[in-house]
Design a protein around this nucleic acid. Structure first.
Lengths: 342, 342
DNA sequence: TTGAAAGCGCTAACAC
DNA sequence: GTGTTAGCGCTTTCAA
């Protein structure tokens, strides 16, 4: 009943300040166009009224709400979360908000998100580790500014941000090679993800470059989770002959695998070496601590934010393609193979 | 130059279907009010035109964009992420989008978010593990529907969702007590968080209920991170006398602490037992696997979503207060104390 | 430098 | 049932 909580619009402010709504609007958007005293007066009234403009009305008029959509496979995955975290920070500094979409590791769902994305509501979209086809992204990019962070969808004219996986595998295999390992298995992730399939091939090729074999039974597909790694390792154990080392497509997979090996009675790294991928915060703290390929999540998030902002500002600049390095971080989970006489 | 990509509005549809805009609007919002044949005709035209309404325009007219704000301390924290994940799923099913805000573990920042929240843009807000004061939330709740998920801010008339920490500590201390432990330390989290301080007191009280002491040097504050646990454990080690068991306010803290103990040469659980809090996915896979208090993150996220939706529908229903159970999940990291003769 | 007024695209009375 | 029209709150010409 106080009557003080009526809704304040730009009109309320204009009236109380004795100016027109356009002046108030200018004070907010082009202050230099308004004469000092009037400007201050308006500002004061806005203060008193605790006025804040409606993003909706402004958005309708300017065709921009200042929102960026971010699509992730699964926000509970730390790697995803770290990228989002970094991107949000940058976006916030530019005054942009973030609308989050989670595909829940489901391709159907992911494609549905692409299709039903509220395109009129967001100014652009960042897709993290997307699993769509090139055409999906080509189509998306027609509708709104798009940045692809994750595996490159080579060939399409879209801002892309990826890690140098070729170099990464090169480094990792070399690391093991120099340690004396020749028999290396790979838990490459899920066959249902582009990243997984891509890494499987990349690994195979890299092994060949080193003159090593990567037989099919040493290439194991598994979900990108702790359980996935656990089960992948279990399958490996059932095969009998063990490789001297196991690489995994994520630290989660590696940690799951380590657990299985340990339960089996194996000692890491003397019986078997294990390496991860991500260099997640956990890697340093598990026992044994996990050798991993350092993935620049923060950097990727930041760059993605920068790219989308630039793309929004200039929709026809030529697409960027940023490639970030991957470097081996050596820890306790890897060691030269023991020379078993068998 | 094709001319096919002009922007389609409700008017375009109306014209092409030979009806008025209100009919088109009705087809979208109150289809039962439109005669079958007209309805189908409009639907067909919408299809052909690939028309999708502008959420902005609709929002401006209805005063609702269908967006829920979610504020978290840190999305890279799995516990946060799991709650968000679950909430998003529920919200999506109700046709709501999510705008994410990250306080970056910083109280200042958190309060700034409360203050600068685009209240006109979102229909409601879910605060997860908030660290604000009651008055902050009282104020927020005046402006828009609010749900508090995390430590209860008892006393204010706002929908609240918390875990039964009293019962949880009861269970956990009893678990250790029955195992024969009398000396229990607690890495309670950060003094700068409400949750941490609250748990410290709760733990102390619970210990007393069991006739046990919780001396100051066994109550250690530390950041809610792996590093935090590591450093907390280091401080404990420096004290000399070790407790038989250590409880931690999160699995992250516990894992960090375990790492420190192991580096120190201690064997877990025979030298010292460690328990976590959260029962995160990691708990099963670290070595030794971690005894933990199971926290219903998914449940909390889902309930939070339900609550905010109900609150939006009826802003004056009496506030709900849901309390979720915490149960001990026993694993390898805990065991009866060894009977050292010293 | 300022104000008047025409949108932005949709919803919801209100009238027919 | 359906159409007309007045908003929703802001930006942005266009004139003055």
């Amino acid at each position: 009943m106080g009557g003080t909580d009526k809704k304040k619009t730009i009109d309320t402010v204009a009236r109380k300040a004795g100016v027109s709504v356009s002046t108030v609007s200018r004070v907010m958007n082009n202050p230099e166009m308004v004469k000092e005293d009037k400007r201050l007066r308006v500002l004061k009234v806005m203060e008193e009224l605790e006025y804040s403009p409606s993003p909706l009305a402004r958005g309708l008029a300017t065709d921009s709400l200042g929102l960026i959509g971010i699509i992730v496979p699964n926000i509970t995955n730390q790697a995803n979360a770290r990228i989002v975290y970094a991107a949000m920070d940058r976006l916030e500094k530019k005054g942009m908000g973030v609308m989050l979409f989670d595909a829940r590791e489901d391709l159907e769902r992911e494609l549905t998100i692409y299709r039903t994305l509220p395109k009129k509501m967001i100014d652009g979209v960042i897709v993290i580790f997307g699993n769509g086809e090139e055409e999906d992204y080509t189509r998306l990019a027609e509708d709104l500014p798009l940045v692809l962070a994750g595996p490159p969808a080579v060939g399409i004219p879209v801002d892309q941000l990826s890690s140098n996986e070729g170099q990464g595998f090169q480094n990792l295999v070399q690391y093991f090679y120099e340690m004396g390992h020749r028999d290396i298995a790979f838990l490459y992730g899920s066959d249902k993800t582009k990243g997984g399939v891509r890494r499987k091939n990349l690994f195979k090729r890299t092994m060949e470059d080193f003159g090593l074999k990567a037989p099919g039974h040493h290439l194991l597909n598994c979900p990108w989770t702790l359980e996935g790694g656990y089960e992948g390792a279990a399958r490996l154990l059932k095969q009998g002959e063990l490789p001297g080392a196991v690489i995994s497509s994520s630290d989660q997979i590696a940690i799951g695998a380590m657990r299985r090996f340990q339960e089996y009675g194996l000692h890491i790294p003397s019986d078997i070496s294990v390496a991860g991928f991500d260099n997640s915060p956990m890697a340093r703290f598990v026992t044994p601590s996990l050798t991993s390929l350092d993935f620049p999540h923060s950097r990727m998030g930041e760059e993605a934010a920068e790219l989308i902002i630039r793309r929004i500002q200039n929709r026809k600049k030529t697409p960027a393609r940023i490639i970030l390095p991957l470097e081996v971080v050596s820890r306790e989970s890897t060691a030269p193979p023991e020379k078993h006489s068998g």
